[in-house]
Amino acid sequence: MAKTAPKAMTFEEPLFELRKKIDELKEYTATADVDLSSEIKSLEERLAKLESDIYENMKPWDRVQVARHPNRPTTLDYISILFEDFIELHGDRSYGDDEAIVGGIASFHGQPVTVIGHQRGKDTKENIRRNFGMPHPEGYRKALRLMKQAEKFNRPIVCLIDTKGAYPGKAAEERGQSEAIARNLVEMAGLEVPVISIVIGEGGSGGALALGVGNHILMLENSTFSVISPEGAASILWKDSALAQTAAEAMKITAPDLLKMKIIERVIPEVRGGAHHDCNKQAAYIGDAIKQSFDELGGLSGQELIDQRYAKFKSIGIFSE
């Protein structure tokens, strides 16, 4: 799946059709003795216009599809480009190693950092190993262990969020999924080092938030952060999961929505059409954003970082007095 060309998402279909037509014409001119260059040129102009029409007016549901794209870069893809000397550290020291969350130490422009993220698989085999990026409690406990370790050595923390949610399973409940998530929320609140949480794909509910109590929350332009998946929301609110598209609009889950609600600090621009079109370029955008956040937070003391996080989350909510 990872090796094939990007699959067309519904909103992109007109583009793919037009591109196919252009390719066909080109092939035809190469073999037959006719000059269609002017036709090709006009079609290419149309394609360029259509591209900007489509990609610059993406609807929430379009973004959901991009966020879920099978070729969308994952945490480990970005880590390998963004950081140097990454050493993965495993295990929660209590139960096991959850491969739905990866973490470790690395260097970012010469600065030691701890980086942690949800990890989806690239194919079915890897997805089974990584449980489709849906962590068990031991995953969250590993994340917390690495965060505490970062604090001890005064390293900033970068969290990459990319999960449909914490795994809803029997073993997860038995081992305290609720407590694992809740503990991360409370302990992240007290970290004396800068924490930057970046949503790179889907940010699904508490399972995403458990890596999300950062000084800054940033979101990739086509990522989502939500209390429930659009399908879940549709089935609860209207008893019909087919209304997911409507729910995606209604639930306000896109990066621009969260920026408007003042939940996130910044939207990280995406490569046109989605991060999967150019992972290296996308990583560079993310690197710039991390650097900017580090610069902004770099001067704050441990207590100031805690206070900043307090003020940030305290201010979230809409109500009247």
Partner: peptide, 26 residues
């Protein structure tokens, strides 16, 4: 759990209450 009708704002209340609990605990 979180209230669907307030979307991600509801989710963020989990973090809001947590930062307050941490200060209380400290």
């Amino acid at each position: 759990g979180a209230r669907m009708q307030e979307g991600v704002l509801s989710l963020m209340q989990m973090a809001k209450t947590s930062v307050a609990l941490k200060r209380h605990s400290n």
